[in-house]
């Protein structure tokens, strides 16, 4: 009997190990998606601080609304509150699980909505160290995966972007499996596979007893020594936003 248990144990262990690193990585990404499922919608205020090598800083303040969708990627709406000359400018984004995202920008100065050419998503977001692709909704389908290692409760997974126009060859994401698979750190490798940036998440808070949200993102560019800090405040998961809040008409209103 003991022998059978032993054989079973060995078989089960082997069975788990037989999973390839690719499958394991995908499994972790899906687990993370699963853990964050069901927040419906949220709003948050964001202060973005850009720092250059000399420590000179510049600030922007924004409000972000997100609508959770399951059959396709999330929708989001970002409104600029400052600097003054772009106040009221807002972007509307429909992320797609497959293919390029759609994006519109509303310019209050001419009261017009302009669609942004969707090929370029790898450039810096308003002069910061964040590319648009770093900030957009993290859909599982946008990457291929490879499990790298496990350090205590931390899981490191390599993610290779599917989009050929991405600025990265790969990124190394550290998940915390005990805290709802939240991101702890992301390392970005550029097209020549050199470490470009590191994003560290901190001051996590648990909302609705399920959703982990970091209050601080620190993105450091190792090649230019510039840095961008995002401070999130006033998370609101009770806004009950709907599709109507994420249309071109809504964009003009915001």
């Amino acid at each position: 009997m003991k022998k059978i248990i032993l054989i079973l144990t060995v078989l089960i262990t082997l069975g788990i190990q037989a999973q390839t690193p690719e499958e394991h990585g995908l499994q972790i990404a899906k687990a993370a998606e699963q853990a964050d499922l069901g927040f419906n919608s949220s709003t948050v205020n964001l202060k973005m601080t850009l720092k250059n090598k000399n420590g000179q800083t510049s600030e922007r303040s924004l409000t972000t609304k997100t609508l959770e969708l399951t059959e396709d990627g999330d929708k989001s709406l970002i409104v600029f509150n400052s600097p003054k000359d772009v106040k009221g400018t807002s972007t509307l984004t429909f992320t797609h699980k497959v293919g390029s995202d759609d994006q519109w920008l509303y310019l209050p100065s001419i009261k017009r909505v302009k669609r942004i050419s969707s090929n370029n998503k790898s450039g810096p977001f308003v002069g910061s160290e964040f590319a648009y692709e770093d900030l957009s909704s993290q859909e599982v389908e946008k990457y291929t995966y490879k499990f790298i290692e496990e350090k205590g409760s931390l899981l490191v997974v390599e993610q290779d972007p599917v989009d050929p126009k991405s600025g990265y060859t790969r990124r190394l994401v550290t998940y915390n499996k005990d805290k709802g698979y939240r991101f702890e750190k992301v390392e970005f490798y550029d097209r020549k596979n050199a470490l470009l940036k590191t994003l560290v998440y901190s001051n996590y808070k648990l909302y609705k007893n399920k959703f982990w949200r970091a209050s601080t993102f620190i993105m450091k560019n190792h090649q230019s020594n510039k840095e961008t800090i995002l401070n999130f405040s006033d998370y609101n998961f009770d806004a009950n936003l709907s599709e109507e809040d994420f249309t071109q008409v809504a964009l003009k209103r915001s």
Partner: peptide, 17 residues
């Protein structure tokens, strides 16, 4: 405001590097 918002739009449209 126009200049600032055009620049914002233009910058959002530029690729990596």
């Amino acid at each position: 405001d126009e200049a600032a918002q055009y620049l914002l739009l233009y910058e959002l449209s530029l690729p990596f590097g």
